[in-house]
Every structure is written in structure tokens, then in C-alpha cells.
Write a protein that binds this DNA or RNA. Structure first.
Length: 455
RNA sequence: GAGGGCGUAGCUCAGUAGGUUAGAGCGACAGUUUGUGGCACUGUAGGCCGUGGGUUCGAGACCCAUCGUUCUCCCCA
């Protein structure tokens, strides 16, 4: 028997970690509900067909596929062999795999809306907090199993939704006490730029190239644009576009001048302006940054796009989202516009941990440990615990009659702040000795007085 | 998908140019102390040196593969 191990990129979470993660989940969940979103859960696995082709070529490769059962069935050897042949040719086949682990929460949500659109009340607002799986190579801030927390609104074109979703970002990170920048851009602006520089069909090439700006620098981006056939004049516009700096106000103005008159860009600028205006008074507005280099890989986005970056942290984006006009048409139900955001809990955790931003209070534990000094004493302690627990005071008794030393050390290790000693003396006087381990002080408390105390 | 670093006790790590029986600190356990912890002292346990193969008279050290981990690229949360 070899040593047990975990699959690559997966983790166990100990008590302290779970509590800190719950703190993040709870913060996000509470804010989602405060904005009128309701929960949804979908299965860990989906039909492979539901997921394939939705995340681009790279994405397809990163989907965890589930091997069909019964491939070794002698009656199916021919079909299985055929299936493997197709796999080797790079094709997918239900003969080998027909299910896969979900890759994100947005596509399963779109599938859900498509399946139930007749029964849902629109606008439909749902939030979803579940793990997703990607067959990516793990590294810092990247896992093969990680949680996303999504909130989406479908069935409404209103920009008020974008306003609310950005407000959710700002509120959650304020509550988590984490400094962030919520970047805003608009696919309509990128489309406008593409129209001005070489045509709509080059939009994808263009966005991929400019998305790399902060990584490889303008020189390399220009090289790539050259390869993709952008003229010197077009590159000059793109360069000016990327060099836009200043306040949000000033950036929008510069952009407006640069792409003068382009209908799509004008619309995109107005939409960003709309969201910024709504937040102008809030005090959190300073964290909203118009960033025209933001592209986002998923090409189902059609309007405003968002990305959240923690300030002063070596970590990729910790959240992202945007508007998609027609996601459910992938599943045969057209004309359901939507907009959504996502929080990457695992990365948020890593950043909060690195910056030491978890409040001490998240590590909830036992408040009182009753020492075990024998059968009769333990029984009395048990009755007292019932009273305390009814008052929601977490307490426990050391299960074995052991030396003081051992019981003290147990309390210490678990970080239990108080211990109660009931020995034969106390038992006969109907009182107990309460000791605070942090201060070292102790007092005698009558049994009936215990339940009225605060811990 | 491409490339690099690392993997020795529960934890953090030593282990020189391959050479007998693989070490330390912390932790755990026991005792000094059968109703008052944290300190100290004494002692004890704990290792298929990630796994499998190879080179060698001899491998924890070298080679190959594999798994895990970490970092970079790609892409992303």
C-alpha cells in the first residue's frame, strides 16, 4: 500500500481554513441576497455536449471529461475501439465520454435558463456558489478544483443591472477590507476600435493582442499586429488608444475624440459613463477604473465587461464578468440578454491570507472546556453543558478522566478560552471553578448562576 | 500543452567527492508533579530517504520514468 495522496491541484481544508473560507462565502452570499439574488445549484457534471465549444479551443482542452462506465463490456468492444480511434483523431465521441465536470457556472446557468425559460419569472436573478474543475496546470493562484461565486441577471437590458453588479463588487471587497480596482471596459468600444482599424472581423485578433499589453509591452504587441495585417496607420490609432491615461472622465473624453463618431464606441462610452455616474457619490467610486486594455477571453461578452484586481498583490484577477446578449441561444432559446459577475474565492483567500486580512473572530471555537474528574462529576458537567448549549454557548467536556496537565493542554491546543472544574468539593457545594486561560484568573460560580453568564 | 526548481521523522530542515547502524530542532508521548496548564529537566517512540526501474561491489546522493509540489510561458478565477 503506497502512501495516500491527492490528485494534482486539489486540496484538503483544515478547520481554520474552512472557517476563513466560510467567512468569504458568507460575505458574498449575504451581499448577493441583499441585492435580491436567489440561490441555484446545478450538478457537478453536465453533458459533455453542453460544455464543448463554449470556452474556445483552449477551454475545450481544459474540460475534465468523465470516462463512460462499462467500456470493458465484451459486447461493446467494437464500439469502444471505434470510440478510442476517434479520440486519437482528436474528435469527441459519446462512445467513450458523454459527461464532463463543469468548467464554470455561467454555461450551466445558461443551460438551466434555456431548459426552464417557460417557468421562470424574468428578469431572473440567481446566484450560485459551487466548485468548478479545470484540467489546467496548477501554479500560484491556480487550482484544478476551485469555487466560483456567480451572480447573473437574465431577461433585462437595463444598465441598472450593471450598476448593481459593480456595486456588489465594491461592497463585498469593502466588507472584506481588501483594496481592489474594478476595471471597466466595453466590448462595444473594442468593436468600435476594430471598425476604425481594419474591420469588425479583426476584433478577436485585436482584443487578443491588446490584452497582452501589460505582459509583453507595446513593442511586442505591435509585432503581433503586424503579423495580423494591421497597417502602420491603424497601429498608430491602436497605440494612441492604448496610451490613454488619466482620470476616468479624461480617459473617456480622449477615447471619444480618438474614435470620433464611431457609433458602437459612442454607445460603449455612454454605458461606462452611465455606470460611473451612478457611483459618483458613493465613496467607493474611486475603485472603479475605466481600462480600455481590458479584453477578457470569453467571446460571448457583448457589452460592458468587468475585472477585479487586488491592489498590491501578486495575483491574477480575483473576479470578472460582463454582459452577454444571447447566451441561451447556444441552447436554442434566443433573445435572453444577461449580465453577470463572478468571484474567485480561492484567489481571494490567498490574497487575504497573504495580507493578513482575516478578522480573528472568524475562527469560531469552543468557549468552555469542562474538566473530567470522574463519573459523577462528569454527569453534573453534562447537565450544565445542556443548559449552556441551549443558550448557544459552545462547550465540550474532556471525554476521559485524565490528569489536569493533559486536559489543560487540550484546551490550550484548541484555543478554548475558559475551563470549568467540577470535582467532588464543587459537586457537594453545587458550584464550579471557572478559570479564564488567557488571564489566568479563576472564580467560584454556583451552578444556577452559570447559565446567566456571558462568554 | 511547453520548460525549470524541489520531494529525507507529524512540521522545518541537515546529510560533505556515492561507503558500515540516516541526523538535529520543534512537536508528540511518558516521568519529575494522583486538583491548577504555559517553563525547565530526564526519557521514549517515530523514517520502504515520494514511488518504480536502472548504473554500481555498494545509492538518500548518480541516470530514467512516474506521482506530488512550486515557478515561468500559454490561458485563466
Amino acid at each position: 500500500m503506497s502512501k495516500p495522496s491527492l490528485p494534482q491541484g486539489t486540496r484538503d481544508f483544515n478547520a481554520a481554513t474552512v472557517q476563513k473560507r466560510q467567512y468569504i462565502f458568507q460575505t458574498i452570499r449575504t451581499v448577493f441576497e441583499l441585492y435580491g439574488f436567489q440561490p441555484l445549484e446545478t450538478p457537478a457534471m453536465e453533458q459533455l455536449e453542453t460544455l464543448m465549444g463554449k470556452y474556445g479551443e483552449e477551454g475545450d482542452k481544459l474540460i475534465f471529461k468523465i470516462l463512460n462506465n462499462g467500456l470493458d463490456n465484451p459486447q461493446k468492444v467494437t464500439a469502444t475501439a471505434e470510440g478510442f480511434q476517434k479520440i486519437l483523431e482528436g474528435k469527441n465521441t459519446t462512445q467513450i465520454t458523454e459527461r464532463a465536470l463543469r468548467y464554470d457556472l455561467t454555461i450551466p446557468f445558461a443551460r438551466y435558463v434555456a431548459m426552464h425559460h417557460g417557468a421562470l419569472t424574468f428578469p431572473f436573478k440567481r446566484y450560485q456558489i459551487q466548485p468548478v474543475w479545470r484540467a489546467d496546470r496548477p501554479q500560484k493562484g491556480r487550482y484544478r478544483e476551485f469555487y466560483q461565486c456567480d451572480a447573473d441577471i437574465v431577461g433585462s437590458d437595463s444598465l441598472l443591472n450593471e450598476v448593481e453588479l459593480t456595486a456588489i463588487y465594491l461592497t463585498v471587497f469593502k466588507q472584506l477590507n481588501l483594496g481592489v480596482e474594478v476595471k471597466l471596459n466595453n466590448r462595444k468600444i473594442l468593436l468600435g476600435l476594430a471598425q476604425v482599424c481594419g474591420g469588425e472581423d479583426k476584433m478577436i485578433d485585436l482584443t487578443i493582442a491588446i490584452d497582452k499589453l501589460d505582459k509583453i509591452g507595446w513593442e511586442k504587441v505591435a509585432e503581433e499586429l503586424d503579423r495580423k495585417g494591421f497597417s502602420a496607420e491603424q497601429q498608430k490609432i491602436i497605440q494612441s488608444y492604448l496610451e490613454i491615461e488619466g482620470s476616468n472622465e479624461s480617459k473617456l473624453e480622449q477615447l471619444s475624440r480618438l474614435l470620433n463618431g464611431n457609433e458602437s464606441a459612442v454607445k460603449g462610452i455612454e454605458e461606462i459613463q452611465y455606470v460611473l455616474d451612478y457611483h459618483a457619490q458613493s465613496g467607493l467610486a474611486k475603485n472603479l477604473v475605466a481600462d480600455f486594455t481590458l479584453a477578457r477571453g470569453l467571446n460571448y461578452y457583448t457589452g460592458l465587461i468587468f475585472e477585479v484586481k487586488a491592489i498590491d498583490a501578486q495575483m491574477g484577477s480575483i473576479g470578472g464578468g460582463g454582459r452577454y446578449n444571447d447566451l441561451t441561444s447556444l441552447f436554442g432559446v434566443p433573445n435572453v440578454p444577461g449580465v453577470g459577475i463572478s468571484f474567485g474565492v480561492d484567489r481571494i483567500y490567498d490574497v487575504l491570507e497573504e495580507k493578513n486580512l482575516f478578522p480573528a473572530s472568524v475562527e469560531q471555537n469552543t468557549k468552555i472546556l469542562f474538566f473530567n474528574l470522574g463519573e459523577a462529576e462528569a454527569k453534573e458537567a453534562y447537565h450544565l453543558m445542556e443548559t449552556l448549549r441551549a443558550k448557544k454557548i459552545a462547550c465540550e467536556i474532556y471525554p476521559d478522566k485524565s490528569k489536569f496537565d493533559k486536559q489543560f493542554k487540550y484546551a490550550e491546543k484548541k484555543g478554548i478560552p475558559n475551563i470549568i472544574i467540577i470535582g467532588s468539593d464543587e459537586l457537594s457545594k453545587k458550584e464550579c471553578t471557572l478559570k479564564n486561560l488567557t488571564t489566568g484568573t479563576q472564580q467560584i460560580i454556583p451552578f444556577d448562576a452559570l447559565a446567566t453568564m456571558e462568554f
